[in-house]
């Protein structure tokens, strides 16, 4: 039982290092889209929410799960769409301005 937890902890710590490594390379000018984009990734709780909402265990658990699904989807869809909106502006490079 505890070994299971330790394995999860190992994955967590290693992923943390990957995250630190990758994110340090993001330039300051992209920090706002980085935040909203990584925010969308944290909407990955949608997985947990979906499982909990779909198990049909108890009525209360299902209700909480469905609200969780809605919350997580706001996070996911809102995060990705708003990030795309911002990055689209960064892509636009008017050639006229030299």
């Amino acid at each position: 039982m505890m070994e299971g937890l330790v394995i999860l902890l190992v994955i967590f710590v290693l992923a943390m290092f990957v995250g630190l490594e990758v994110v340090t390379k993001v330039p300051a000018r992209l920090h706002t889209p980085l935040m909203s984009g990584s925010n969308a990734i944290s909407g990955i709780t949608i997985i947990g929410s979906t499982v909990v909402a779909g198990l049909g265990a108890t009525k209360l658990a299902t209700v909480l799960g469905v609200i969780a699904v809605a919350f997580a989807m706001i996070n996911v869809v809102g995060g990705y769409v708003v990030t795309d909106r911002m990055l689209q502006m960064f892509k636009k490079k008017p050639e006229g301005g030299k």
Partner: peptide
């Protein structure tokens, strides 16, 4: 929070993603 949810349901995907976001927030 997402990572701890991953611990709750023993889900590697949640843990990895949560850790990535956690790291990003710490750096910023």
């Amino acid at each position: 929070a997402a990572a701890t949810t991953g611990f709750v349901i023993s889900n590697h995907g949640l843990i990895i993603s949560g850790a990535l976001v956690g790291a990003s927030g710490i750096i910023l």
